[in-house]
Nucleic acid binder design. Structure first.
Lengths: 94, 94
DNA sequence: GCGGAATGTCAACGTTCAGCGGCATGCAAT
DNA sequence: ATTGCATGCCGCTGAACGTTGACATTCCGC
């Protein structure tokens, strides 16, 4: 359980909160523990994990950094969700 | 110029602002145009593109959505640049 | 150079945030 | 059942946000 978390696609603040929570748990950190390392308060982290849209992006970035979560922005070209494993492996996608 | 923007890795709010600006220009949108579509004010967008760390994440997400920029969070485990195909093909969640 | 558009920036205002302290709930282990 | 920890939530305060409207500056085409 909570062993490994793959690439997560985020669209809303709820997604973001869920992703942070997952990553935190996969590192076996408590909210208080993560908050301390990221320099935020536990109350704030709790609200963020629950999808607060008004949270400041700078604090979010610090938190993701502590969680070793890299943020990649990619133009929505021909891709649909996550990465295109088929194309990656050379599967003929018709 | 401003033809295509590849995947951008973001660590700070400055990176984020730069990425947004790049994507906006690649779509040949003005700040006013993008702001209108994203439901934000031009003043806010200007400050965000200049790296304001206190911006609300919800508005950022709306903006990225309009720009067709997908957000991927990926655990920075043994990875270096791209993703680890070996691990990808060998995942065993058990 | 000129003119217009795009962008940066400022002040005032109302709104909302983050921090703090505390308390209630839920869950697991004893 | 009781203890302990993790988490959610409340009120309060001070600080910072976002909006509006305006003005200054920069950029780009002509």
């Amino acid at each position: 359980m909570f062993k490994y978390v793959g690439i997560m696609r985020v669209r809303t603040s709820r997604d973001l909160g869920a992703a942070i929570r997952q990553a935190r748990r996969s590192l076996r950190l408590t909210q208080a523990g993560l908050a301390a390392r990221a320099g935020v308060t536990r109350t704030w982290l709790s609200s963020v994990e629950n999808g607060k849209p008004g949270a400041e992006v700078g604090m979010i970035l610090r938190t993701l950094d502590v969680l070793d979560l890299a943020i990649d922005l990619q133009p929505a070209g021909p891709r649909h969700g996550g990465f295109d494993l088929d194309a990656l492996l050379g599967v003929d996608d018709g």
